[in-house]
Nucleic acid binder design. Structure first.
Lengths: 341, 341
DNA sequence: CATTGGACTGTAAGCGCTTACATTCGATTC
DNA sequence: GAATCGAATGTAAGCGCTTACAGTCCAATG
């Protein structure tokens, strides 16, 4: 008798023995196959209950070669940029009987590649990734194993990769237009790190193109590039405001940076929007919590998440390639942006 | 020739064949065993590279009966209450070579039980859970399989379960004392749902006990119990402020509710803290972002996460039961609480 | 009553990996 | 040069599950 452990993890065999049937029958019960008598099913379920049996996921995955698990790799969990979208993604998956595994790449490309491998290794049936820019070897790895994937938070009609998102460049251009319409000409920019981040890059481009189209020189607009953190937004703002010619508006490439800017403005004793206007992008929850509320671009996060889940499940069910979808964003004018007289 | 798929997922066997060695040798290379010649190792690594091989996690878990994966089940990912702690938890685990799997129970006990099973099934070596209150069957299930676990965000010296956290009741009592010291006597309370949530329950108790100790009747303090959502905090605040005798301070059981309250105060045209003071609990990032900054209780989230990871890894390494640790919280007096004249 | 067919159940072959144990191979020692 | 021994490598037995295929059973049929 083995004394070292007085507990045993019950297996399918244990259940089968206890119920007096074969393992195949137990498996069939557990997987909702019709070909089981009610009487048998009941016996089995009782045994399962009595033993406190839970199927071993790894074994099941290996035998069935299907896990009903989706993987998602997002650049960050620390700030809320992706929270709502992922939440909706997961809710929709849940309805379809799928489980979601999320991991974060901290905006580091090599980490993303590692996470992809990890999720693939864990048997994810398909993957959700953010944006287009990444090492080609990642796409290669995915192709090589025939792993279905979908990109989100970006849309580029010229790309071969299936994606569901919106046009970051055009959205930001629209917002910039609105800022110019308010009479602003001295614009400063706080951007996220552009390398390996097409969303940030496209948004920045959107501002510059709009400025150029309106006859302003984009290169004249002071710009700071900094990682997506509230604190960084605050520091960047402070630096920008120390220039000889202060900007009348600071446009941030996302809400997190913008909130940091607002915070520092307050700490510096500057009124928003009286002394300086501030804009963001994403319309995360924070945008409405700050005082004044933040002018930003609303992204249909929830819908994007939901549709991404649907598309991925269809791809799997029908074994067909992914289809891209473009969603619309919307500029939200709120208190942080004022009209110049 | 199989035409239906032109890709094949390489296996250990493929690598072994390509490298001209046995699967055992390949496995040894991959798992860092010393017993391999440098020459052999090199051959193997080349084959791995050439084939783009990634080990199948499920198979590995099954064979090795160890996954180097920890599971954590937190009540919510949607608001940031647990974000920093979990982040630190995961960083520390990473240093020890562990991977973290997180899932959220949405404050629903039955869902938590399901998640526990799911993580166990996925082969988690150990689990991190939040607080004490849960269905006994969960603890039973854990015991039965000999699954190591640790509780966090709460500490109760009388409980048999290993935990790492702080005394929610005493912390809240201290804050309440500070509020009373400022001259407040008309206190209203916004609490989270207490059922199945010992943290909320203890915090509430902390307020009531402090009031009683100071000769005030706890039952006189208006109280609203509502789920942890900004919006709910806002609504509760509005309701409380419609009473005949307005409170001079609204104490919230966590920062999320408090931020909601502040938001609604602003929308109702009430000055904080001029017209009404507001306090929170947790000291999440938001607490410093709102204007005025929130008076709250600082919880050592990061340290808690880090220590939890260490303890769990030690439990696994030494195959020993968990040890409880109590951490200290600290009241942070900030702009949202004013002294009554 | 023998035959047939359909519905359920059982048998057993893997899924891709780790690892105890057996084997081989050199180098060292006498 | 034979014996010895430790290190490197190979062999093969599972880990817990699903599922193709085979087998069984019983009611319906002739």
């Amino acid at each position: 008798m083995d004394v070292s452990r007085d507990y045993t993890i019950p297996t399918l065999d244990d259940v089968a023995r206890q119920a007096g049937v074969s393992t195949a029958t137990v498996s069939r019960c557990l997987n909702g196959s019709q070909k089981v008598t009610d009487k048998t099913r009941e016996k089995v379920m009782q045994a399962v209950e009595a033993l406190g049996y839970t199927p071993n996921f790894g074994a099941r995955a290996m035998a069935a070669r299907r896990t009903y698990t989706m993987g998602a790799i997002i650049p960050t969990m620390e700030n809320a940029i992706f929270a709502r979208g992922v939440q909706a993604f997961q809710e929709q998956l849940h309805k379809g009987g799928y489980t979601l595994l999320v991991s974060s790449s901290a905006y580091r490309p090599e980490l993303e590649a590692e996470q992809v491998r990890a999720l693939v290794a864990r048997g994810a049936d398909a993957l959700l990734l953010i944006g287009y820019d990444r090492n080609p070897s990642v796409y290669e790895h995915l192709e090589r194993r025939g792993m279905p994937y979908l990109l989100a938070w970006a849309y580029n009609k010229d790309s071969p990769h299936p994606a569901i998102g919106f046009d970051n460049r055009a959205s930001m251009a629209t917002l910039t237009g609105a800022v110019l319409d308010k009479g602003h000409r001295d614009i400063a920019i706080i951007s996220g790190i552009v390398a390996g981040n097409d969303r940030a890059a496209e948004r920045l481009r959107g501002i510059r193109e709009c400025l150029a189209a309106r006859g302003l020189d984009p290169d004249k607009a002071p710009m700071i590039e900094t990682p997506y953190e509230i604190e960084n937004g605050a520091n960047a703002f402070e630096t920008l405001m120390q220039a000889d010619q202060r900007p009348t508006v600071v446009m941030c490439v996302n809400d997190v940076l913008a909130v940091g800017a607002m915070q520092r403005a307050r700490d510096m004793g500057l009124e928003v929007p009286g002394d300086v206007s501030i804009t963001g992008f994403d319309d995360i929850e924070l945008a409405r919590i700050v005082t004044p509320q933040l002018t930003t671009v609303h992204v249909p996060h929830r819908e994007m998440g939901r549709l991404a889940a649907q598309e991925l499940m269809h791809m799997l069910d029908d074994a067909r390639p992914g289809v891209s979808t473009e969603l619309q964003s919307k500029v939200c004018l709120r208190g942080s942006l004022r009209a110049l007289d």
